[in-house]
Amino acid sequence: MNVSKIGDMMTLSEWRQNVNTLGNNGTPFLFIVDFEMKKPLVCTLEDADTLGLLYHVNGNTNAATNLTQKTSPIKFESFPMSELRFKKAFDDVQLQLQKGNTYLLNLTFPTPIETTLSLEEIFYRSKAPYRLLHPDFVVFSPECFVKIHNDAIFSYPMKGTIDASIPNAETIILQDKKELWEHNTIVDLLRNDLSIVSENVVVTKFRTISKITTHKNELLQVSSEIMGHLPQDWRRQLGDILLKLLPAGSISGAPKSKTVDIIRKAEGEDRGYYTGVFGVFDGHNLDSAVMIRYIEKTVEGYQFRSGGGITANSDFQSERQELIDKVYVPFV
């Protein structure tokens, strides 16, 4: 496999074959696939450094741990998109939900930001189980795409958050019907996706609560766990398996194919690596993330991309607020 620099693109078919070969040989590797699946990357973990890629996947990392803290005050300012543009997209999506063309759709937009931090500083200072630094973007994602351990594949759909400081926060979020319906949909979608590549698919945890600490507050996050059994030779078809699961259900919606068409029309531009996936195969097992919480360098400056799931019961103002609220960095 020849990947000499980051600009060296491979076709999706080459990527699939490379991943199958690396998996079969038990060679540890890093992979990155964009939402549109036009710019897939894969390199051995040894080569990641030379390509300018830093990864941190639940503690497995090639980044230095003794980072220097910046002492000067951090500037981090965001400039949310116009309400009108979001309203137009939101209304278009609502019409499609009413017509039964989609049941759940993840709608996202870029927000220009100004910050004194470099992408590298954000990589080092942000707190998240999954982090990736690429020459053009940085990711600090809380969301797992899939984990493969031994012959089992796991997915952990996350839908629903609430400010932990609200009295009875846990009861409120668990009893919220709209949240429940949206969570049901994502669980059925991910059961389906795992059933494409594995068997004996079961929901092992349903709507369990975990606490997330951000620099602003504490949040309660609702998530589930779905598990399936892969064929024993999964490593030699790892590229095929990953591609069958893309795009990730949580950032597209259901039914996936039609929903992605609606997303393209509503958002009006490619997402690029945002909402794609990245992960690490350690030679035996695999862990990966959905690339949400994402800042990219563009010719017009930095952009923070964010979004949320829209259902027939979604409220315009709270969805817009969610999109704005997600534009932050959980600093250490």
Binding site: E199, N200, A254, P255, K258
Partner: peptide
């Protein structure tokens, strides 16, 4: 019909 629950039907049949 390009649905995202089709493989849930397959899994139900396998079960």
């Amino acid at each position: 019909n390009y649905d995202s629950f089709t493989y849930n039907i397959l899994e139900l049949l396998r079960s």
